[in-house]
Design a binder for these strands. Structure first.
Length: 306
DNA sequence: CTCGATCCCTGGACGC
DNA sequence: TGCGTCCAGGGATCGA
């Protein structure tokens, strides 16, 4: 499941492999995860991919100007003009392929490039998102998201975390608070910080908050070095899995021994997500079992018509 | 403001 | 072998 380190890995891979290439044409197959498919078919052909960046869990392909008769110029430095946003959801993948390579299953978009390769988007579950945005619309979209956890200062991080009574696990997952953290790295950073996932943000001490900021940043940086975590599907632009899953201390370790104290790692649902923690190292917040249901989510009944 | 529930989707695990 | 069921989860949305 691509979170910040996995998306960073993909963005770096694309920057190395397709930056500077021009998109000749676009082939769309399934489009229900695309904001405005017709816009993409109209706007993308002929555009050059200037560079690729990560923004939260989005891959941003920054494109050159639309019109430009004759030579095209780079966009003004630092200013985002127009971009293709790609969110990988749970199972999305964006990677260049040779055109003669057979299409993998669930390949929904192909961008034909000017060097004969194709940049392909595959996504079995289609929890991802693709959108072409420009100008103020693009800026407005990016403003919806909170601080980058690799860049947030002590002060900014503290304000964002401690001013809310929501549980810390929910805050870490909330993209309008911090952009890029998902379930794995939330659990890993909380384990390292010895903070229980159901602790309200407002109940964290300044020291705990700073410990969490540093732990989160360290975990993310280490995971980027290891090219992300591969639980089931994730592969980078070379088709290689990540390796950080070998360093998980909490996520996916229910019933196994805590590396610090030997107690059994538990799993509860917090903020609607599986949350793995050490009941000994990460004691429950005082004042009750708020949000401490056991693992089962209610089984949905007959799906109702819409 | 914060919460849980529901929905989107498919592959994989598991029980029979 | 095959079928049914459950589960995973990021994010939007809605009602409590």
């Amino acid at each position: 499941m691509p979170e910040l380190p996995e998306v960073e890995t993909v963005a770096r891979g694309l920057q190395a492999s397709v930056a500077g290439r021009r998109i000749l044409s676009v082939i769309l197959r399934k489009t229900d995860f695309i904001d405005d498919p017709a816009l993409i078919e109209r706007e993308l052909p002929g555009r050059r991919i200037e560079r690729i960046e990560r923004y939260g869990k989005f891959v941003l392909l920054l494109l050159d100007e639309a019109d430009a008769g004759g030579t095209r110029n780079s966009p003004a430095t630092g200013l985002l003009g127009q971009a293709l946003l790609v969110h990988l959801g749970m199972t999305g993948n964006l990677a260049p392929n040779f055109a003669e390579q057979p299409l993998e299953k669930h390949t929904h978009v192909s961008f034909l490039l000017d060097d004969g390769r194709e940049l392909r988007y595959t996504d079995a579950r289609r929890f991802g998102r693709m959108a072409y945005l420009s100008g103020e619309t693009l800026l407005a979209e990016l403003r919806r998201f909170g601080a980058d956890p690799l860049e947030a200062s002590r002060e900014e991080f503290a304000v964002r975390i401690r001013s809310s009574r929501a549980r810390i696990k929910a805050l870490l997952l909330d993209q309008s608070v911090l952009r890029g953290v998902g379930n794995i790295y939330a659990d890993e950073s909380l384990w390292r910080s010895k903070i229980h996932p159901a602790t309200p943000g407002s109940r964290l001490s300044p020291q705990q908050t700073e410990t969490l900021r540093k732990a989160l940043k360290a975990v993310l940086l280490r995971a980027i070095e290891m090219r992300g975590s591969t639980i089931s599907d994730f592969v980078d632009t070379d088709g290689e899995p990540g390796e950080y899953q070998q360093h998980h201390r909490a996520y996916g370790r229910e019933g196994r021994k805590c590396y610090r104290c030997g107690a059994r790692i538990e799993r509860v649902i917090v903020a609607g997500r599986s949350s793995h923690f050490c009941p000994s190292c990460q004691p429950a917040p005082r004042g009750g079992r708020r949000g401490m249901k056991t693992k089962k989510r209610n089984r949905p009944g007959k799906p109702s018509k819409r």
